[in-house]
């Protein structure tokens, strides 16, 4: 099993990543997921994270099969 990573809006452009699966090896938290896909880029200060479509922080534990998303502040309505 793997972790599905999704990025939206300006975050998709920042990381040049829309959707991707990564292996679970060495991944314990949302922050680890970021390091795995960000290619050394720092996480912008206002980044929002979600695990399985619920908002989560960087320390949140992730498991095999989870969906992890990164996106900027929301601007709907």
């Amino acid at each position: 099993m793997a972790i599905k990573v999704k990025c939206f809006a300006s975050m998709r452009e920042y990381l040049d990543l829309s959707e991707r699966e990564i292996g679970i090896d060495g991944i314990k938290t949302v922050a680890d997921v970021w390091r795995s896909v960000a290619g050394g880029k720092p996480m912008p200060e206002n980044t929002l994270c979600a695990v399985n479509q619920s908002q989560a922080n960087e320390e949140f534990t992730v498991n095999s099969g989870d969906e992890v998303a990164f996106f900027p502040p929301v601007t709907g309505g």
């Binding site: 939206f8 809006a9 300006s10 979600a50 996106f71 900027p72 929301v74 601007t75 709907g76 309505g77």
Partner: peptide, 10 residues
Amino acid sequence: LKSRAPFWKN
């Protein structure tokens, strides 16, 4: 909705 629902405007 404005502060919590994941929508983004370009």
